[in-house]
Design a protein around this nucleic acid. Sequence first.
DNA 1: ACCTGAACACCGTTCAAGT
DNA 2: ACCTGAACACCGTTCAAGT
Lengths: 226, 226
Amino acid sequence: MAEVDRPARRAGRPRTTVLTRDLIAHAALRLLDESGADGFTMARLAQALRVRPSALYNHVEGKEDVIAAVRELVSDRIDVDAFADEPWDAAMLAWARSYRVAFAAHPPTIALLATLPLTGALRTMRMYDTVVAAMVRAGWPEQEVLPTIVAVESFILGSALDAIAPADMFDPAGAEAEVPAFASAYRARARSLGNAPPADAAFEIGLRALLDGLRDRHARLHAESS
Amino acid sequence: MAEVDRPARRAGRPRTTVLTRDLIAHAALRLLDESGADGFTMARLAQALRVRPSALYNHVEGKEDVIAAVRELVSDRIDVDAFADEPWDAAMLAWARSYRVAFAAHPPTIALLATLPLTGALRTMRMYDTVVAAMVRAGWPEQEVLPTIVAVESFILGSALDAIAPADMFDPAGAEAEVPAFASAYRARARSLGNAPPADAAFEIGLRALLDGLRDRHARLHAESS
DNA sequence: ACCTGAACACCGTTCAAGT
DNA sequence: ACCTGAACACCGTTCAAGT
């Protein structure tokens, strides 16, 4: 019964291309979005592509490689253009928000991609190159640029992870007496946010504080050198 | 041969206790440290405890539950005492560093634990209660306290994830011409850091900026209300 | 070059049987 | 109450056979 709508392809090279690394990556992202990280197996991925699992290994090195390909797909949506014509701090704000949005668009991938080290792909290095160049132009000491970018990225990734946590995870219901200050702050936050996602509020507060702090430092460095 | 040093226990309840949730958690943390997240399987965990895998299920609900128990173990090392007698900002600095150290002590667990939502355990809520109470005492508006704490935590977790990435992941070797600004900043960072871990520099720069920004905000809120 | 099909060495989890 | 042992339904990956 399940066999009926499976491909009736015989062994041997197909006359027309059925798989490429890019097709696999797109199918993987779709599968991830639809069935979550747990449902993401090579077998299911092959099924979605109407192919046997072993066929995938002609185009990717393994599951890790598929995930790396998905990461490239997601990372491509990060917009770095603001660094071309906006001041470094405004550009960084825009970049950080775009970065977070790119991941937030595919919640099940976040844990998978955050966990995996960023690939050393040329595309990724080009993104860094744009950001680095703008910061150096703005007068940041060169040896501080990379740590500063990494710090902002760490905050973004951590916030993305926080965003996929269940919203009511820390509902202190039943333990109010044990943790009164926490319970009260929990209620105060709920009142002030309404239906807005708590993770968004934390991200905006943190991002603004981080950039305020970086602006302070930038100003201090500038004051010394003049 | 491998059978020789396996337990020769017959079926049936053992006369003396061989397993508890706590014993399992400690063995799991040790196994994780020794063989990494990939080598962490229920079978290997059972082997370390000289027990059959199915025996574990009398004490934990499954693999996820084991990971939750490990998280509790790691989280217990986070020191929140500074909030008792230091100003909120100094205490937060100390808390953040202790938080990061607790995870850094067990690198292979970071990806596993960061991915999993924090358990709503009472112990965790008590930690939050301490931090919240200190911040409210310091004059922070109650509805902002939780988002602010979550922002700091996001940064810490993101930084911990960054710390386990391979150090040379972004070595632009061979692509210097393509990404000159990035390659130059990469070299400048290497010169200024020597053998110090790049992740530590990023963490300290980010943490200070974040807290400078939060201090700004705290001062601004205070100025308005007086 | 690139597919199928069979095979391998594992997984996590359930549950009856046993003490 | 809590262990063993057998079983189930999967995993990711390799590789010969086939076109």
